[in-house]
Simulated assay, not measured.
Amino acid sequence: MTTDDLDATPILRGMYAAEQEYLAAGGPGVASFSALAAFFASDVVLHQADSLPYGGVWRGHGGLERFFLAMSETWSTFAMVDQRFLATGETSVVETHVDARARATGRRLEFSILQTLRIAGGRIAEVRPYYWDAAAIAAVCR
């Protein structure tokens, strides 16, 4: 299957909906991760910029669970208020506008993330988020 043959839109929409439900239900330690995990390959790799409070490389379902724990320790709210699916093939690109509040400072920040997601075998195999201003995110969290 070539990039042109795959329409990853149902996978992407399903994953983002499951992520919102997971976070709304209380996230790590409260909600079940299984519905969200179903959208990811067992050996998924998530790359986050090292300058972020939750930076680093997160591997596998266990790594994603630890990532979401780090995210919930960073943000008291994290709402994906608008999304645009710019490419939806084997390599997909999604722009997401976020409205979040830092847990440590109580400060609110709106920002955009551009994610590239590699799809393999009907699941998300790799995610690379690009933040417009990672320094602003780090600053609001201190």
Rank of each mutant, 00 (worst) to 15 (best):
A38I: 01
G56T: 05
P53A: 03
A18C: 05
D99K: 13
C141W: 04
V44D: 04
F40R: 03
F67A: 10
R84L: 10
W75L: 04
H61P: 11
L52V: 02
D5H: 13
D99M: 10
D4N: 13
A79W: 06
I113E: 12
V44W: 04
M15S: 15
A38S: 15
E95C: 12
A104T: 03
R128S: 14
V94Y: 09
T77I: 11
W132Y: 13
E73T: 05
V140L: 11
Q115E: 13
R118A: 12
D43S: 08
A87F: 03
V94M: 10
E21T: 06
M80I: 12
R108L: 12
G60S: 08
D82I: 02
D4A: 14
Q83V: 03
I119H: 12
D7K: 05
A102S: 14
L64F: 07
L117P: 07
A136R: 14
G56V: 00
I137Y: 02
R118F: 03
T105F: 07
V57D: 04
G29E: 02
S112Q: 15
A100R: 08
A125Y: 08
R118V: 12
A100E: 06
A25L: 02
I119S: 11
T105D: 07
L36E: 01
P129W: 09
A17M: 00
W75Y: 11
L86A: 05
A134N: 01
L23C: 08
E110S: 14
G14L: 06
A41P: 04
V81S: 11
F68K: 07
G29S: 06
G29F: 01
T116K: 12
F85Q: 03
A120P: 07
L6F: 08
W75V: 06
G89T: 00
